[in-house]
Amino acid sequence: MDESTAEHYDKIRLELRRGAISVALLAALREPQYGYSLRKRLVEAGLDVDEGTLYPLLRRLEGQGLLHSEWREMQPRPRRYYHLNANGKKVLAELGRDWKALDMTLNTLLEPQS
């Protein structure tokens, strides 16, 4: 891949990931998580999301009424926990269906033409 093609590939890959990260975040937040533990959980699942993206996205999803958050006093420091709320659960169920449909479509399209 030459330099220019690699650049285009990076851009498309970034766009592809952008939407997927929101779905992954919502899915991971079916259990309450604080920022660092959430990031670790995503990395373990194979999705490395940098902190500069993760925290503002959590705020945005909370602003959209999909997440609930609260500060919890704990050792060695207080942490802000995020959790999917009822609205978020409904949206996640829909997104899950959309994702599977999209996955099937892409698999069909990506199969080599006979």
Binding site: G35, Y36, E51, Y55, R59, R77, P78, R79, R80
Partner: peptide, 19 residues
């Protein structure tokens, strides 16, 4: 959102440094 976001950034970075 200054105090709230500031506290979260501090907490998350402190967690990273601890790790």
């Amino acid at each position: 959102k200054r105090e709230d976001v500031g506290a979260e950034i501090h907490s998350s970075l402190a967690d990273s440094l601890d790790a």
